[in-house]
Amino acid sequence: MKEYTFFPGCSSEHNASAANMENSIQSMCRILGIKLNEIDDWNCCSASIGYAGGGQLPRMALSARNFALAQKQKGNADLVATCAACWLAMRETNERIETEPHIKADLNTALAEAGLSYDGHIKTRHMVEVLIEDFGWDALKAKVTKPLTGLKVAGYVGCQTNRPFGVCGDSYENPQYLDQMIEATGATAVPFPMKVACCGGALMFSETEKSCVLTKQILQSAVDNGAEVIITPCPVCQLNLEVYQGMINKTLGTNFNIPILYYSQLFVLSWGGSWQDAALHQQVIPAEPLRRFA
């Protein structure tokens, strides 16, 4: 049993937009023997647009509070995030606390108002790093009892699980780890030139038309390369690609109907988990191509 401190983030809450990611990740961890110890009373990480309303200190105080609670409750155990933006914001804040003494001092003055303090030293990791580094490809493949043979999958890495920090030293321009995950489940990773293109991120809310054009190009590339489903590690990518497909079809004259899943859902299904365990009942665009494996 491996244990980690866990920061789920807002979109992974019950009845929130990435509940399918959270539920499938919990199943994945049960199968692998991972115990996730959730930080009690965590708050939002500020996501990618918190800078505008929060500036640097209030924005980073949000992540600092999560670190302070984590340290108080669980010591310096590695902190695992499953959301791209949470991982990025937490890592950035920790890096600045550990390298900029005045930022560390100011954030601790702010934290003191909440009766908390944080002196650095907690490593923030993404769930995909835990899978690759702490378990490894052989272990992930060994779990497969129901290989997804013949399933054609486009691995959409997106932005923030890739840049600026990168995953396990993989390339920024053509990362391989998601394709390797697809192949580890027995499925086929299709060539996917748009794998690191931006879906618009949070600007899907404020610049919907412009972001829909970006998302359309990603969907088109996956479909053109023969993908039956797209998988991603990022909750914002998943939301934009799935929930805006209807609007893209309507406004840009396309006819997409491609399921958008998380890597964790593929793993759980191929490791013998049920449709429910993989949270495949929580897809807005039903995951029909996976029915033949359920």
Binding site: L57, M60, A110, E113
Partner: peptide
């Protein structure tokens, strides 16, 4: 505590 923390961070 969360709001007090943010107010102090904004002041700093």
């Amino acid at each position: 505590g969360f709001t007090k923390m943010l107010a102090k961070a904004a002041e700093l």
